[in-house]
Computed example of a mutant assay.
Amino acid sequence: MEKMAVKKAVAAVIEDDTHQAVLGHPHVRKFEALLSARLHGASVLAMNSGTDALIGALKVLGIGAGDEVIVPAFSFISTASCVGWVGATPSFVDIRLDDYAMDMAKIEERITPKTKAIIVAHLYGQPTRGIVDILGIAQKHNLFVIEDAAQSFGAEIKINGEWRSVGTLGDVGCMSFSSTKMFAAPGNAGAFVIKDRALLEEVGRMRFYGAKVHYYDYPTIGINSKIHDIQAAALIAKLGFLDYWEKHHRKVADYYSKELAGVGDLILPRELPETKGTWCRYVVRTKRRDPLFGSLLKVVKERGPLWWPMKNYPVPLPYFSAFKGLGHKLGDFPIADLVSQEVISLPMTNYVTTDDAKMVAAAVKEFYGQGK
């Protein structure tokens, strides 16, 4: 049903030729309004990607050369590469074992006079449990908080008795709707969420070449980070199915949790108190990660990449060559080091059915010699 709705929406855009317009983009504006409503009225701009949203966040907050930004040692590369892209320096902090998010108890020791912001990554569809503490630390030290919610659009956390959407808690929220996400655009897309309306307008100019008046006035150096009306129309159609997919992911996650409890040395994910995750990923830990990965891949390989297990992420961010100038070495981030060698994401996409989950769970049990 979703596929038919998307085809119909895209065909309608092509038919009325609005996708040819240089200005206007009515479907993009409508998508932004619907996304804002979904996020309880937050100000939203559609972007070409979650990575562009992160770069835009740093740029409009005035962060650049000579500045430092605190980031988790364990996340997708964009969480840290965006900092280097604007000329600033990432300052890495180790993570916790319960939600693989930044350890808030280790943040203040990394703050220097050069620190300007903290990037919080909500991984695997789960909210960062320590976000309230991190917001408090940021307020104490007059720092910006940027939420990397690329993997967790739709996730919520209860704060002072009220359910709040991730991406709307800090100064800026950045989201991704790439092909690996539960809510995915054709091609690529993302969103920028911000409280300050003036900064929202600045990001709007930045994503459109820096234009105040196109062809006549470019007060800032910008990029081309718009999304297309065709992408927006597809996302509008998909919004109507988002609740269904969230329930589907939860159903698959619940099945994995039930069937794999007590199997081998597996450490299963869990939803922390007063949080609502979206289960974008179902990530387990095991000291036998690599052989389990190989065993599972043999079982599901013919199903295609959308059914394959994944290693998210096998190398902590500080050890990438891009950051070698910072001088980090193995052992500097012991929890990130441990997790990176043990995590494996079991198949979890919109295309993974409960029958697929049964096949995966059976294969995991067989690997551990606990199959029927």
Rank of each mutant, 00 (worst) to 15 (best):
M4L: 07
M4D: 09
K7M: 08
A12R: 15
Q20H: 11
L23Y: 14
P26Y: 11
V28A: 04
F31S: 07
E32D: 14
L35V: 15
S43M: 09
S43I: 14
V44M: 02
V44C: 03
G50W: 08
D52C: 01
L58M: 10
L58F: 10
K59V: 15
G64N: 02
A65G: 01
S78Q: 12
F92I: 02
D94G: 09
L97V: 05
D99C: 14
E108S: 01
L123V: 04
G125T: 04
I134P: 06
Q139I: 04
N142E: 09
A149R: 06
Q151C: 01
F153L: 14
I159T: 04
S176L: 06
F177N: 01
F183A: 00
A184Y: 10
P186H: 03
G190V: 00
V193S: 00
V193A: 02
D196C: 02
A198V: 13
A198N: 11
R207Q: 12
A211T: 11
V213P: 01
Y215D: 14
D217T: 02
I223A: 08
S225L: 02
K226P: 04
L235Y: 08
I236V: 15
A237P: 01
K238T: 07
V252Y: 07
A253K: 09
Y255K: 12
K258C: 04
L260I: 13
D265K: 05
I267K: 12
E274V: 00
Y282P: 10
Y282S: 10
L292A: 09
F293W: 06
G294Q: 13
L296W: 09
L296K: 10
K298T: 12
K301C: 02
L306W: 03
K311R: 11
P314T: 03
V315P: 03
P316D: 08
P316H: 00
S321W: 00
G325F: 03
L326W: 02
G327Y: 11
S340W: 01
L346V: 12
N350I: 05
D356W: 07
D356S: 04
A357W: 11
V360H: 07
V360K: 02
F367A: 06
G369P: 10
G371E: 13
